Simulated assay, not measured.
Amino acid sequence: MAVTGRSERDLAATLTDAGFVRVAPRADGDSIAAAGLLLRALAARSTPFQARVVPLTDDLPADATVPIGFPEEFAPDDRPASAAAADLVRELDCEPDPGLALAGCLLGGDPEAAGVDLDRRSGVGIPTADLADGLAHSTLFHADFSGDETAVGAHLAELADDDRAVASLAALDAVGSEAASDRAATAIERALRPHATPEGPFETAEGLADVLDCLARDAPGVALALAMGHDTRLEALDAWRTHATAAHDAIRGADTGRYDGLFVARINEGPVATVARLLRDFRSPEPVVLVVADDEAGAAGFDGVGEAMAEAGVAVDGMGGGTPSRGVARFDCPPEAFLEAFRGAMA
């Protein structure tokens, strides 16, 4: 039976006596980071466990001891799942990894909830020491040079490796474009003045958050292994680069339309959820974005998105789901039919 809707202290008491724990995070970066924090503590306590990432379109597993990322379950007070996991780990007399806790809370929208203190530095929050690589493949923002390492290199050649100048480059390019949305100036802030993680797998907590978010749907097993502390750095970075390039390319090739309160982008292929988030934050004049491909869709907004994707999926005999701010769906109908179903669900 799942142990949910309880305080971290009560849950810690249950896990302390558990002979076997099944952890089931949803396929989003915050939930996977939270699972990693808990699984590290269980391993340190020699508690046997099994972990499986659950797609956003799937229901809560009946056999999950600790389901993470499901509404009203692991963190019913609307905190990031990673914040709840960090408190739970402390109740288990372990210390949460600060970089992982912060990365998860960044993805959960409340970095202060991590309860950790990491030094900040100037520059941009990327996972690699190679600036051209990191800037070109970051999905913390979308700029004219995004996805094009050669173009980034040309810009960097004029900056003398100055972190502040690099941050200015990213900010001005992401915010200064004629196509930039009003939200771009706020959204770019989470990529700037990153938290250094010298003991972590990547250069910054923001870089780790970016990688986890990209891998949550494309390579959830690699994402979970990374969050657990296994040496999957190179594999994770390869998957991150592939995901990011596809997302930025899809944005440039999208056919877009605007409805009352909804911005729609039609793409041939690409990571629909990431494309939707980037469009919401950096390009959309509307608060909700729907990205539609031939048989799948991704959406990003600020409230009710996952529920709307689930409702729209059911309406077209498909499936959907997600979090309040992001969602995905799969369907076997004309994309226009799903668009209309989603519009109806959001109305």
Rank of each mutant, 00 (worst) to 15 (best):
A2K: 03
A2N: 07
V3Y: 05
V3T: 03
V3S: 01
T4L: 09
G5E: 09
G5P: 03
R6I: 15
S7K: 10
E8V: 14
E8P: 08
E8R: 10
E8C: 13
R9L: 12
R9F: 10
L11P: 05
A12T: 06
A12K: 07
T14P: 04
L15Y: 00
L15D: 04
T16V: 09
D17P: 04
G19P: 14
F20E: 10
F20G: 13
V21S: 04
V21T: 12
R22L: 14
V23L: 06
V23M: 05
V23Q: 03
V23P: 01
V23C: 10
A24T: 13
A24P: 10
A24R: 06
R26Y: 07
R26N: 10
A27H: 01
D28I: 15
G29C: 14
D30T: 15
S31E: 10
S31K: 06
S31C: 15
A33Y: 02
A34Y: 04
A35E: 06
L37S: 06
L38T: 07
L39F: 08
A41W: 02
A41P: 01
A43K: 12
A43Q: 10
A43H: 09
A44T: 13
A44N: 14
R45D: 13
S46W: 08
T47D: 07
T47A: 11
T47S: 11
P48A: 03
P48G: 05
F49K: 03
Q50T: 12
Q50D: 13
A51G: 09
R52I: 15
V54L: 09
P55F: 07
L56F: 07
L56M: 14
T57L: 04
D58Y: 03
D59T: 11
L60N: 07
L60K: 08
P61N: 00
A62H: 06
D63P: 09
D63H: 04
T65N: 03
V66R: 00
P67S: 02
I68Y: 01
I68F: 03
I68C: 06
I68R: 01
G69A: 09
F70Y: 06
F70I: 07
P71V: 01
P71N: 05
E72T: 05
E73I: 04
F74S: 06
A75T: 13
A75E: 11
P76C: 06
P76W: 04
D77L: 12
D78A: 10
D78C: 05
